[in-house]
């Protein structure tokens, strides 16, 4: 019995052309028994950053609250919103603080960061449960269906996808991956962040 697989669940984030997408399933279980089909794992951090938390259910909630607290403190002290890169490091150091008694979560960060010229640049990152960051340029995955997500994303993803095409790509990747994972699924939610709006959709998926 692995703690990381006790509640199940998966998260993925992808980069597109001037946009990013992040998606997760909605299952919460006790090993094989499904408890809820509406357990959120992806949360807004600022207007331009989302974080996805796959792993132990209790730590999903605890870390979400902890990140909200730390981001609020940052915003008050700095008198500005946190940037995605900075937030990724905040996630990393929060997890590394518990190096020898970790939170059983592997977070995924997706956001649009400001460039010096005033534009927006897509940003994604993922860390392991003790905060080692992976700044990928294409996509990052996490959770019990991670190997399946890797296989699909590697096959479906391509550079410079427009928001609607990115939505289709991340949705197909997630849906087909969780359908082959007993611990993930039971519905899904997708967020696509663009420079002028955030598209959030709940997907209809297999409920078995």
């Amino acid at each position: 019995m692995s703690i990381m697989e006790y509640n199940g669940g998966s998260v993925i984030a992808m980069v597109g052309k001037d946009c990013v997408a992040i998606a997760s399933d909605l299952r919460l279980g006790n090993q094989a028994l499904g408890i809820s089909s509406n357990f959120q794992k992806v949360f807004p951090v600022t207007d331009r950053i989302y974080v996805g938390l796959a792993g132990l259910g209790t730590d999903v909630i605890t870390l979400r609250e902890r990140f909200r607290y730390r981001v609020n403190m940052y915003t008050i002290k700095e008198e500005r919103e946190i940037e995605p890169e900075t937030f990724a490091h905040l996630v990393s150091s929060t997890l590394y603080e518990h190096r020898f008694g970790p939170y059983f979560i592997e977070p995924v960060v997706a956001g649009l960061s400001k460039t010096p010229s005033g534009g927006l640049k897509p940003f994604i990152a993922a860390t392991d449960l003790i905060g080692c960051i992976n700044f990928a340029k294409d996509f990052v995955v996490s959770g019990t269906a991670s190997s399946k997500l890797f296989g699909l994303a590697e096959g479906l993803w391509e550079p410079d996808l427009e928001p609607e095409d990115l939505f289709e790509t991340i949705s197909q990747t997630l849906l087909n991956a969780v359908d082959r994972d007993a611990y993930s699924g039971w519905g899904a939610v997708v967020h696509v962040l663009t420079k002028d709006k955030i598209i959030s959709r709940t997907l209809k998926g297999r409920m078995d």
Binding site: N7, L28, N30, L33, G34, I35, S36, N38, F39, L56, G57, T58, I61, T62
Partner: peptide
């Protein structure tokens, strides 16, 4: 709200604990 000893909490339309949950859910 369904809450277990780990602190896992989720709002549900119905919930159960114990062996009965395998039948009731």
């Amino acid at each position: 709200h369904w809450i277990d000893y780990l602190g896992t909490s989720v709002e549900v339309p119905f919930g159960a604990h114990g062996y009965g949950s395998y039948f009731a859910l």
